[in-house]
Nucleic acid binder design. Structure first.
Lengths: 230, 230
DNA sequence: GTCTATACGATGATAGAC
DNA sequence: GTCTATCATCGTATAGAC
């Protein structure tokens, strides 16, 4: 990590423990989480990372691509944990039925706990929630990369946990459920407004319990459509 | 509407059927819906409206205030229709129980049909969906103004339709339900990704049926928490 | 009161030297 | 691979015409 190349102008950055690209990612992640995408200029990022402004455009094509890179890097451990928990749930179920609540816990839990993974207090979950609704077509392009394996695994898991459901209905309910999660992460202001009080001091366990209960109820109701009708 | 003041320099705008303020609102609404908030500069708006750039800063304090003004204006008829439908549902229920699905239909229907109200094809629903998750504190400030009466009416309606639920639980489920709606409006890309096909050609009635069924199932499941536990 | 012309600082992006 | 220099464009502010 440390460099002995004292004749180079890159001594300071080398001593600080990372190449330029990673230093940009670190600074950007911190500032994005703190102030959001739009409010964080490339100049603030490069200043915090102590690198040149143009290096962002060299290592990443644009600010948009930088955002994507930051998100992908942060999502990876979360998605790994999701699959880990899903594996455990499926193993626990064995040959028996896969509980919908367990699948939802595996999907929701790692995201809600994401703020502790960084080791520092951050509003990254809120940032993550914005991903789904950020304007622009670039969002659609990160789905395959960001949650390709996760989507594939949970697709079949939800289908297994909702035996009465058809594929299309399960995907719709999955979409609605993700919406509930994303909205909780991204729009705490509305919740505070509805509750007519501050909702910031909430325990993660309690939130997860409520969220999973809501999701499970909704998904089961949608899956039961064909049963009730036919 | 038409002006005979041919001696004035404002003939052109008068002939085009509106004062500057409204022409800005019209152009902004169209461009915001078409390209999103960030991608629409004030210069493009004023160019489309054929007014001076500085007039935006005169009639509205800032771009942010302009966005709010556009949203409030567009939300008003939607919210009026919501209350209209809620009134009808409550009258229909009479002294009997208020059906949760009816309340949800009243809440969801007018939004899903918003694209037809403008008389032109627009992606305003998508724009509306972004409101809930847009970064920045200004969003929180529009809630009281944008859905003050609506929130108040539907708060009590949901409580009536969910007799087993406590206030806090009902508000949480309301929040989650709004999340499902907002997410559907704002993130069609994810749905297409999950379905592995284009989802653009969907009938509003079908979507509403699915959405309301999901919401109702989720809200009932969350409301039943206390019952099951106690 | 309304509207215009003009300017300011900051932003994302790029070209070309090293 | 990294830098300096420069670009067009952005939101905003103000002075002054009507």
């Amino acid at each position: 990590m440390d460099s002995t190349d004292l004749s180079s102008g890159r001594v300071e950055s080398a001593l600080r423990g990372g190449v330029t690209k990673e230093r940009i990612l670190d600074a950007a992640e911190h500032l994005f989480a703190e102030h959001g995408f739009a409010a964080t200029s490339l100049r603030k990022i490069t200043a915090a990372a102590q690198v040149n402004l143009a290096s962002v455009n060299y290592h990443f094509r644009s600010k948009e691509s930088l955002i994507v890179a930051v998100l992908i890097r942060k999502m990876s451990p979360i998605n790994a944990r999701r699959i880990e928990l899903l594996d455990a749930a499926e193993k626990r179920a064995g040959e028996g039925p896969l509980m919908l609540e367990d699948v939802l816990d595996a999907f929701v839990g790692p995201v809600l706990r994401a703020r502790q993974e960084g080791g520092e207090a951050s509003n990254f979950p809120k940032l993550l929630g914005r991903v789904y609704t950020e304007p622009g077509d670039w969002v659609a392009r990160i789905f395959p990369q960001a949650l390709g394996e996760v989507a594939a695994r949970f697709r079949v898991a939800f289908l297994k946990a909702l035996p009465a459901s058809e594929f299309v209905d399960a995907m719709w309910s999955m979409h609605f459920a993700i919406g509930s999660l994303a909205h909780y992460l991204a729009a705490p202001a509305l919740l505070s407004f509805l509750l007519q009080e501050e909702a910031a001091t909430l325990d993660v366990e309690v939130v997860q319990a409520r969220l999973v209960r809501f999701m499970a109820g909704g998904m089961r109701a949608l899956a039961a459509k064909k049963e009730a009708a036919g």
